[in-house]
Amino acid sequence: MAQENPFQEATHHMEATVQLLCTRLPPPQMKFVNGVAMGYRYSDQGALQAIIQKMARVVSALRAAQLLLSGGFIQEQAAINRMLDEAEDDINFLSLGIVFGETELHKQFLTYFFIEEYGDPNRPIQTRNKRGSIPRSKIHAYLHQNPAMSSDPSTGSAVMQTIHKAYSGYIHGASPHIMEMFGGTRPSFQMSGMRNTPLWEDHVDDLWNYVYRGILSFGMAAKAFGDDDLCLRMLAYSREFERCEPK
């Protein structure tokens, strides 16, 4: 069997962590409304259930980003990076709420997170629910005011908001971001991937950073689940992964 590369190894470790922590919770059950199956849902809608879902999303998104990167589709990979940025922050945010005490901001986050798209699947337009959202700046502020995350709250929060805004351009299709696709020996829009361009290497490094951040956030999640041994193993693995960083 071929040896795994560090990226594959990391995502396998992370997937195993999700599956392990899933066993600590009652499993999701099929939800029916007026005789129509809505899909699997957790009966309890607490922070641990939200953390597990965010962790699963991170592993899937990392693998999707890697596939896009390998094909040179760095614009689309960058859009997934924005999703990863939020999901990894959310894991830390919810985990710290468990460790240090849940705030009203955590309660509001969970209310918005678990709300269904509509109340009755037979009448989706008439029963559509309005989902609110927590301003990302408030989550950034919470994370960097927490002693477990930062010794310089104002700078840390500003950096997080800058990264968040920079990736928004890939999500929403801002002109400066789209124009990164324009170039080549005969300048034109590169619409079949940008594998052999200088920007590609930057995105390789960028994805590596999101894997590393994901490992750290999974360690924080293990702490929230009360598994100190798993937390320490994830932190040790993060140091091992750090040594494999591409130069």
Results as ranks from 00 to 15, higher is better:
residue 199 L to P: 03
residue 183 G to E: 09
residue 194 M to W: 01
residue 187 P to Y: 07
residue 191 M to C: 10
residue 180 E to L: 05
residue 189 F to P: 03
residue 176 P to S: 11
residue 198 P to W: 00
residue 198 P to G: 00
residue 166 A to H: 14
residue 182 F to N: 04
residue 197 T to L: 12
residue 180 E to M: 10
residue 176 P to N: 10
residue 183 G to M: 07
residue 168 S to E: 04
residue 181 M to V: 04
residue 196 N to F: 08
residue 194 M to I: 01
residue 177 H to Y: 03
residue 174 A to T: 10
residue 194 M to E: 07
residue 183 G to N: 15
residue 172 H to N: 08
residue 182 F to S: 07
residue 187 P to S: 00
residue 180 E to I: 00
residue 180 E to P: 00
residue 189 F to L: 12
residue 169 G to L: 10
residue 199 L to Y: 09
residue 168 S to R: 04
residue 194 M to L: 06
residue 187 P to H: 11
residue 171 I to N: 04
residue 195 R to H: 09
residue 185 T to S: 11
residue 175 S to Y: 12
residue 187 P to G: 01
residue 166 A to T: 13
residue 169 G to M: 05
residue 167 Y to N: 12
residue 165 K to M: 15
residue 165 K to W: 08
residue 169 G to D: 15
residue 180 E to A: 01
residue 167 Y to Q: 13
residue 176 P to H: 05
residue 173 G to H: 12
residue 166 A to I: 13
residue 179 M to C: 03
residue 196 N to P: 00
residue 193 G to P: 00
residue 178 I to T: 02
residue 186 R to C: 11
residue 196 N to Y: 07
residue 173 G to P: 09
residue 180 E to W: 06
residue 196 N to A: 06
residue 198 P to C: 04
residue 187 P to W: 11
residue 175 S to K: 13
residue 183 G to A: 14
residue 174 A to I: 08
residue 196 N to V: 01
residue 179 M to G: 02
residue 186 R to I: 14
residue 198 P to V: 00
residue 189 F to Q: 00
residue 199 L to V: 02
residue 165 K to R: 14
residue 183 G to R: 11
residue 185 T to Q: 14
residue 181 M to N: 07
residue 179 M to P: 02
residue 170 Y to W: 01
residue 195 R to F: 13
residue 191 M to V: 12
residue 191 M to E: 02
residue 171 I to C: 08
residue 173 G to T: 03
residue 188 S to E: 15
residue 178 I to Y: 05
residue 166 A to M: 15
residue 185 T to L: 15
residue 182 F to M: 09
residue 165 K to N: 15
residue 186 R to F: 10
residue 179 M to A: 12
residue 168 S to G: 11
residue 195 R to G: 07
residue 188 S to L: 06
residue 185 T to D: 14
residue 194 M to R: 12
residue 167 Y to T: 13
residue 173 G to Y: 08
residue 184 G to N: 12
residue 186 R to M: 13
residue 188 S to V: 08
residue 191 M to D: 03
residue 192 S to Q: 13
residue 190 Q to S: 10
residue 170 Y to V: 04
residue 193 G to Q: 09
residue 186 R to Y: 09
residue 195 R to N: 11
residue 192 S to E: 09
residue 166 A to L: 12
residue 194 M to D: 01
residue 176 P to L: 11
residue 193 G to A: 03
residue 175 S to E: 10
residue 177 H to P: 00
residue 200 W to Y: 14
residue 191 M to G: 02
residue 178 I to S: 06
residue 166 A to N: 15
residue 180 E to C: 02
residue 185 T to W: 11
residue 181 M to C: 09
residue 189 F to A: 08
residue 170 Y to D: 01
residue 181 M to L: 04
residue 175 S to V: 14
residue 200 W to G: 07
residue 175 S to Q: 12
residue 171 I to Q: 07
residue 170 Y to T: 02
residue 172 H to P: 14
residue 195 R to V: 14
residue 166 A to K: 14
residue 169 G to R: 05
residue 192 S to V: 03
residue 188 S to P: 05
residue 172 H to I: 11
residue 176 P to Y: 05
residue 165 K to Y: 15
residue 175 S to F: 05
residue 192 S to C: 00
residue 197 T to G: 07
residue 166 A to P: 06
residue 200 W to L: 01
residue 200 W to V: 01
residue 169 G to A: 10
residue 171 I to P: 02
residue 186 R to T: 08
residue 174 A to R: 13
residue 171 I to W: 06
